[in-house]
Computed example of a mutant assay.
Amino acid sequence: MSKLQEILEKHEEFAPIIQSAKPFKKLDFSASNQALTSRDLSETSVFSKFVFDEMLAGNTFAGIGGYGENRIIYRQRKHFNNEDEQPRSIHLGTDIWAEAGEPIYAPLNAKVHGFAFNNHYGDYGPTIILAHTLDNLTFCTLYGHLSLESLEDLFVGKSIAANEKFATIGCYPENGDWPTHLHFQIIGNIGDYKGDFPGVSSIQDQEHYLNLCPDPNLILRIAENC
């Protein structure tokens, strides 16, 4: 277990990132979900209808899940299948599937580390990365697929308090052209990245990246049996 994991496990003061009244339902985008294998979800409108109408029972639930998941849905997105590198399919964060406009709150005190509009089909779209310090250890959290409005009035070093609203979930296509959701990821060492960081790795690199990016539920604290 890494030092960051130990610190996150012992702290209990994290604010909810999304304060939805809807119950959470765990979603599966791996090959074990047989409903995915026969679907063409390359059109975002079709993908969105599948998620919210079918998987979330007519938007009755908020969706959750995906950390460490080997996702077959990335096979339909060129962003994850570059000919010059290994195909990427291992999801490094947790997705929270909710409607556009859903407020996002800081889980603990933070400063803006970076932000960007990663404007490529299948990418993060508007992205904010926050830096936090706990027990003298600094780490980052990444928030992807936000609204463009979330990037307004930001600057590197801006202070954001725990439980402060600082962003909203974006709509497609500005969110990277995905069904509306938040990609939330913990990053132990962000290196030289600013406003971006890999959210999906190749199978070959998964051990490295999963060690670098521990389970977001260390902060989210959402019941695993949801």
Rank of each mutant, 00 (worst) to 15 (best):
P103C: 12
P103T: 13
I104V: 10
I104F: 05
I104N: 07
I104E: 09
Y105W: 01
Y105N: 07
Y105A: 09
A106W: 00
A106D: 07
A106N: 09
A106I: 08
A106T: 14
P107G: 08
L108Q: 12
L108R: 09
L108G: 09
L108F: 14
N109K: 10
N109R: 07
N109F: 07
N109C: 10
A110E: 06
A110L: 08
A110T: 09
A110H: 07
K111C: 10
K111T: 15
V112A: 01
V112S: 05
H113D: 05
H113A: 11
H113L: 12
G114C: 12
G114S: 04
F115M: 11
F115C: 03
A116E: 06
F117I: 07
F117A: 04
N118F: 08
N119M: 02
N119W: 00
N119C: 03
N119L: 04
N119G: 01
H120K: 13
G122S: 01
G122V: 06
Y124I: 08
G125F: 06
G125H: 03
G125Q: 02
G125E: 08
G125C: 07
P126R: 00
P126F: 00
P126H: 02
P126Y: 03
P126E: 02
T127F: 04
T127A: 10
I128Y: 01
I128A: 01
I129M: 13
I129W: 04
I129F: 10
I129K: 10
L130F: 04
L130Y: 08
A131R: 13
A131E: 15
H132Y: 12
T133L: 03
T133G: 07
T133Y: 12
T133F: 08
T133S: 06
L134D: 02
D135R: 12
D135M: 14
N136G: 01
N136Q: 14
N136W: 07
N136A: 08
L137P: 14
L137S: 11
T138V: 12
T138H: 06
T138Q: 13
F139M: 00
F139H: 03
C140T: 11
T141Q: 03
T141R: 03
T141F: 07
T141H: 08
T141G: 04
T141P: 04
T141K: 10
L142Q: 14
L142K: 06
L142F: 03
L142D: 11
L142R: 05
Y143G: 04
G144P: 05
G144M: 02
H145T: 03
H145M: 00
H145R: 07
L146M: 06
L146K: 02
L146D: 10
L146A: 08
S147D: 09
L148T: 15
L148F: 13
L148A: 10
E149F: 00
E149S: 12
E149P: 07
S150A: 15
S150E: 03
E152I: 00
E152V: 01
E152F: 09
D153M: 13
D153F: 15
L154C: 09
L154D: 02
